[in-house]
Design a protein around this nucleic acid. Sequence first.
DNA 1: TGACGCAAGTTTTTT
DNA 2: ACTTGCGTCA
Length: 729
Amino acid sequence: MEPTTHPLLKILNAQQRAAVTAPDGPVLVLAGPGSGKTRVLTHRVAWMLSEMRVQPWRVLAVTFTNKAAREMRQRLDQMLGAGQAHAMLLGTFHAACARILRREAAAAHLSPNFVIFDTDDQLAVMKQVVADLGLDDKRYRPRGLLSAISAAKNELIAPTEYETKTYYEEIVARAYARYQATLRKNEGLDFDDLLMETALLFKRDSEVLAAYRERYRYVLVDEFQDTNMAQYTILRLLAAEHHSLYVVADEDQSIYSWRGADYRNMRRLREDFPALRQFLLEENYRSTQMILDGAQAIIAGNSDRTPKQLFTRKTGGTPITLHEAYDEQDEATYVAREIQNLLRARHSYNDIAIMYRTNAQSRALEEALMRYNIPYRIIGATRFYSRREVKDVLAYLRLVQNPDDDVSLLRAINVPPRGIGARTVEGVATAAQQRESSYYQGLLHVIQENKLGGRAINALRTFATLIQTWQGLREQLSVAQLLTRILNDIDYDHYLRDGTEEGDARWENVQALRGVVADAPTIALADFLTEVALVADVDDLAEEVVAVTLLTLHSAKGLEYPVVFLTGLEEGMLPHSRSLDTPEEIAEERRLLYVGMTRAEEQLYLTHAFRRSWGYQSDNSGPALPSRFLEDLPDAVLARAKKTQKKTQPSWAATSWTNPRAAKPQAAPPLPTLQYRQGQRVRHTHYGEGIVMESQLDGRSEMVTVHFEGIGVKRLLASMAPLQVLAEH
DNA sequence: TGACGCAAGTTTTTT
DNA sequence: ACTTGCGTCA
């Protein structure tokens, strides 16, 4: 190594160094998992600020999560001295767009006080729209309409431009127009609006665009493979003049196509910026050879990708453990027991993550971890900011900011109950519709005109007076003081703490929210509400907590753990049954597995179960086959905890299955033999003849599922049902 | 009029 | 599990 190496480059390898010191211009860094792309991005910024004499306020850096942004800023402060990077705009696409739109509200034709509507708020608006349009909400599900609209927004298609080839699309177009009008009337923007409105602003207003091209002359983007059309448009427009666009990507980790992400943006980038320089990062610093080989074998199963020569110096390592369990409880028990073993070895709880495809899978795992007294923390399932009590409190704050926010008004108007029932709210709604105003204006009108009953009027007046009082105090009080005042005025404490444990937990969440506010004593209400709307659950990972982490494969992107358990690797779970329609969807499921596997540093467990319960009842379980992806793992990287029969239908459906590893802490009773078996013909005194589909234990009693001809499927208690066996098959 | 209990229907991933 | 709709009671 030459003695004159720049201090910023010392810890970098040759490929990283080349990427960090690339000359100004369009750059694409193709980075494998664990190859230090965050480090490259951070060093690139430092390099630009210190060596290329770039002023920090001319830099826009986009990360995938707020957490990544925070960490990057911390690293930069360490490298350059605190505050050096303060002036640069660093955050997620959504946060950056919210900032720009707030600043350019006039040019964007938006209220500067706009509120961000989250998924729940969107649903509330759409339900209202469906009702207003007189649509059948079974046929036109609000969620379905919202996802169609979201897809349109990600493609920058306005309501008037929405093409309708089918009748359903015609309905979507109508719902879209109405939905958008309602949002704007409420001064609300949904997540997709933040991106779309920014892109449209830049497209429409050449003056604003020119200003931002100068302002953010240097643009850097992480996780570029997961950008959608709207995001790409923003980048393309911003960088079209100075071409100083620096993006980091890994097409093998593209897992957000359902959110509009389009890895073809990589191709567009090459076309739109012909001078693009490409750099490769192929050395993996994270995982052992064993884990990397396994992950490579998985991802190699996808065609239409650029093969990479990833390597690691962590040669060897523990083989990947493949375990098959009887059902999800057994799987969870296995994980818990294995964690106990890991702890007896040299690991701590923080080293360990358990990942799964869907949030619903966390339940069995949680139960097992609780049984074994293993502390855990769970990411995403019920996000902090979507808890009922937190949303209630935020609704009040939003009303102070903008009383014309109908969604928040409807939420807060009778929580805690203050005698404003459905009938009264209906009266307010009618008044609002007649005057074509917000609910709040309608409410004031109702009070003024003294319509409705006297009791109702009094309740409404009390509510309106509260809001007006808070608005009057807004200037004098900090957000924290305002929040405290609101909580006192509505006696929320009393309402929540009903003596139950749950009530106490809810009140604690409110206290936690108060803590968040108190930590930012000078923040403006609008900024606080924006921040709160845009935080992800992964962002709140309190590092100091000693616990195992449970999270979905999607949330796991960008994270790493010494030990990783990937659970539920079955057909229908991964690949998910909803993602089997096209080869592209299946390829994305495979990438999801790849992302999960490459999170592991030292030890990786892959588990699947014979039976998996489906839905909300734990007794509704059905057969499961090992994920097709597992077949691509070479034996050389595997240590099988149990032998799997490849490609053969297991015969457990008819016989009682015993699992030698399933010994529970409180010795479980042996499985009694089942009275009925799959395939038997039976006769029921009422339903007639049928065929046993399956029979299984539910607690101590046997539940038999029978398909009766001309009647359908019935689930019966074996000990009670008047059933007679006719024939074995 | 409003609060509350009960039954029915749903079931991917997230900023 | 969770929401939503409906019927009953104060």
